[in-house]
Design a protein around this nucleic acid. Structure first.
Lengths: 169, 169
DNA sequence: CCGTGACGCTTTAAGCATAAAGGAACGGCG
DNA sequence: CGCCGTTCCTTTATGCTTAAAGCGTCACGG
């Protein structure tokens, strides 16, 4: 980075400091997320007797009236495909989603919200949105924007790193 | 809050917009965290054959040579106490931690790293720190600082909200 | 046609996570 | 001392999560 020398590490102290700062940033990011996630999980259970993964799956479906395949759900929710199988199973048992064979691919299934599922989700989503808004309400609007922008950078950087980590494509 | 009028909501449109913006912020925060967390989890497994919760528990112990009680671990890791029982059990089986009765409270246990556990953790922590640093390396130092400050605000706000949500203390 | 490899999904085993119930010990109060 | 509420921890039942193995299907190249 410095154009004076090619020495790989010229300033141990600041490099080490930056390393620690990045670690602290990660821990803080994690603790913020866990704090909110745990609160949301508890409230969803208390208020609607639904789990967070089930809510997330329904949220993914709500924007896709044509349904989503198990694999697509797995990618969007960032969980394994074996996981989607189980969560979907329970939602089918509750009558909130249906799983019908894909017309174009006999391997795949299309998962869709049932009318009851959609109705239930919309009611939950409205309250859920209020919870989230409440959490961030003390934050000035400019901070919200700043966080959005910074997190977009983080997301892009991490995406690049994890892609490179596995395959150089 | 406004001293002019007591009207609860005066500007529906901007309020709704802000609500949506806050929801998007939460989803982005969640996806950033999941992205990093999943990558770290996979690398810990591949490289050291250890799970993330086990790593986290050891990390909490490393800074406390005198050991921590199960309850204190539960609070610091933000997981249920029943959970700590299981994770600790597995670490004891691996010989990485010990669980000895507390001298001052016969109900409590003190969990400590064994020398082997401490050695193993320090080796992992060094590599782990490198991973995290790598994820954030493309981010300018000022962005790291900005994120730290903003997330501190978020953490404090959410803490206040969740405390108030359960008990007005 | 028929392989062959990739993809979509499920199943399994193991571990993580919670809530709720219960046992054991603590601390106070009468 | 005996009681009572609290705290610390474990246990149970249920559900989430992953990695890995396996089955069926697809698409392509012989």
């Amino acid at each position: 980075m410095t154009d004076q020398t090619m020495t790989p590490v010229t300033d141990y102290e600041t490099a080490a400091e930056r390393c620690k700062a990045e670690l602290r940033l990660w821990l803080r990011l994690l603790s913020c997320t866990n704090l909110i996630e745990n609160a949301v999980r508890a409230r969803l259970r208390e208020t609607f007797d639904v789990t967070l993964p089930q809510f997330d799956l329904m949220a993914a479906l709500e924007r896709e009236p044509d349904g989503l395949t198990m694999g697509e759900l797995s990618r969007r929710l960032m969980v394994s495909s074996g996981n989607v199988t189980g969560v979907t199973e329970r939602l089918v048992a509750e009558g909130l989603v249906v799983r019908e064979p894909s017309p174009s691919d006999r391997r795949a299934f299309l998962v869709k919200l049932t009318p009851a599922g959609r109705r239930a989700f919309l009611a939950m989503a409205m309250v859920h949105e209020g919870w989230i808004a409440d959490f961030f309400d003390d934050l000035p609007g400019e901070d919200v924007e700043a966080l959005m922008a910074l997190l977009a950078k983080v997301k892009r950087a991490v995406h690049a790193k994890t892609r490179n980590g596995k395959e150089t494509a």
